[in-house]
Design a protein around this nucleic acid. Structure first.
Length: 509
DNA sequence: AAACCTTTGAAGGGA
DNA sequence: TCCCTTCAAAGGTTT
């Protein structure tokens, strides 16, 4: 099995290197250009199809698809270099990002003062950010770093900052970091043309290294480029693709490695220099987190009090107490947090018009789709193509046994997700937003038994015995208005969504 | 080192 | 419409 034989067994699939990702100017062997474009075509088509399959219709509507269709893809390899560049300029890497510049939310009237939004809340074309995460990487004159131009010089600090009635609660929102999101207008010497000239090539060597809005994803090399550019993945090049498709277990392992690596094979041309490490840090900042809901805002405010009162630091225990206290709140008290959460969502939607909570794991969905494609091919391949130890793959990614390759054909049950790891927030900064954006990570959610011991040890009230069977999920009792610290019946995390929705219908605050 | 645990609410997708 | 899944925060615990 030549495709699985690696000199360094640890670097599985490493030989499927990404020559196509090299700068075109560095292409020394002319004879490879055509082949690489073919590979790009295959890769692009696969990415496109994957994106199409994994993206919702609403997302497709929301994010115009600038890529040429499948029909034109086959002709791309025949386009001249100039035509390719033009194509990329028109709808490629430089497609405006939906991420909006940070400073705008600081002003009292988003609609009148320097607002990048149209009346309907849409972002004006001129206010859209041209991949701000590219800036520190591009040698644009007058822009030494993101930090230098994060705050517009013409927007002095004397401009009044929003004074929210619950400033303390909205403090997280006021901490949207300018380091990660900078408006294009803040850079005097900046223009899209400058980016084009600075990038020099149709595909910026760095642009692909950063998470971008899904609308721009089709223009960047796919995170699974190391897989898709596999020299034999294209049936045009090798008539027996099943012989070179990595095993699903290998794919999963590689996906995890890629997502955890600050300098990963997503950008194979990048060396592990301090600069690229810095870029990796900036990469982590570009993960837009979900706005906090009412309970999260409540937890953030009440956690220190509970910790001080109960002398317990374990968050799982604290959260149980907070959950009970949450239900003990009056509707008016809860309404305060619901209103705060509503404003958080509103502000978040204005800051990131194109953002969707789905974006935080859509990359994983995409990869799972690709994994399914690979698994389909792998399943069709003779089992002898895999080494004995991989015939029944076991991956340390999750606690569950990975399903057989054939079962991976169904993309409806992805077992992994993109989640932000529970890294502690930097001291003194409580914002969940860009300044402490966590790196993307591939996590699994294996079902584990609840910590009944913890629940028993922390609850001060009588526990409600109930059976947690799959056939009859426990009914959450009505809010314990006058029974603080009364332990609710155990609920599994998988069913809490249904329970909360049921509660929402009956007990909407 | 990284995932897990634990809570509620919001959002999105599938049936 | 309903149900299910995921992710937000937090930090100790577990793997």
């Amino acid at each position: 099995m030549p495709q699985l034989s690696r000199e360094d067994g640890d670097d599985l699939g490493a030989s499927d290197e990404l020559i196509a990702f090299k700068d075109e100017g560095e292409q020394e062997e002319k004879r490879n250009v055509s082949a690489e474009r073919d590979l790009d075509d295959v890769k692009s088509s696969l990415v496109n199809e994957s994106e199409t399959n994994s993206s919702s219709d609403s997302e497709a509507d929301r994010r115009p698809e600038p890529r040429p269709g499948v029909v034109s893809r086959g002709r791309q390899s025949q386009l001249s270099e100039e035509a390719l560049r033009k194509q990329q300029r028109d709808g490629g890497v430089l497609q405006p990002s939906p991420y909006v510049g940070y400073p705008f939310f600081m002003f009292p009237d988003l609609g009148n003062l320097c607002s990048p939004y149209l009346a309907n809340g849409a972002l004006t074309a001129g206010a859209r950010t041209y991949l701000p995460f590219q800036w520190p990487l591009l040698d644009v004159p007058g822009r030494a770093s993101v930090r230098d131009t994060a705050t517009p010089s013409h927007l002095s600090s004397s401009v009044p900052i929003v004074q929210h009635p619950h400033v303390s609660h909205l403090h997280p929102l006021l901490s949207y970091s300018p380091e990660a999101f900078s408006p294009p207008r803040t850079s005097p010497g900046f223009s899209p043309e400058a980016v084009v000239s600075a990038a020099g090539v149709s595909r910026s060597p760095h642009a692909s290294c950063y998470p971008v809005s899904p609308g721009a994803m089709p223009q960047i090399p796919h995170p699974l480029g190391w897989l898709l550019v596999s020299s034999s993945f294209s049936p045009r090049l090798v008539p027996t693709p099943q012989l070179s498709v990595p095993h699903p277990a290998i794919v999963r392992t590689r996906v995890k490695q890629e997502l955890h690596s600050p300098v990963s094979r997503l950008c194979p041309h990048r060396k592990a220099t301090p600069e690229t490490k810095r870029e990796g840090d900036e990469d982590k900042k570009l993960h837009i987190k979900k706005p906090l809901n009412a309970f999260m805002l409540y937890m953030r405010e009440e956690r220190p009090k509970v910790v001080a009162m109960c002398k317990v630091k374990e968050s799982s225990s604290i959260n149980q107490i907070l959950g009970q206290r949450w239900h003990s709140l009056t509707k008016d008290e809860q309404a305060k947090y619901y209103e705060l959460a509503r404003q958080e969502r509103l502000l978040h939607s204005k800051l990131y018009p194109g953002w969707s909570a789905r974006d935080n794991y859509v990359k994983n969905v995409t990869m799972m789709s690709l994994l399914c494609v690979c698994s389909s091919v792998a399943a069709a391949a003779p089992s002898d193509n895999f080494p004995p130890q991989l015939k029944r793959p076991r991956v340390s990614v999750g606690a569950e046994d990975p399903p057989p390759a054939s079962s991976l054909d169904s993309p409806a049950t992805p077992t992994t997700s993109l989640a932000s790891p529970a890294a502690p927030a930097p001291t003194g900064h409580t914002s969940p937003y860009p300044e402490q954006l966590q790196p993307l990570s591939l996590t699994t959610k294996p079902q584990r038994p609840p910590l009944s011991l913890n629940r028993a040890t922390i609850t001060t009230g009588p526990s409600t015995p109930s059976s947690n069977t799959a056939s009859s999920p426990p009914q959450r009792p009505p809010p314990l208005r006058s029974q603080p610290f009364l332990a609710p019946p155990p609920t599994s995390s998988s069913s809490h969504g249904a329970l909360t929705q049921q509660l929402r219908r009956t007990n909407q605050p």
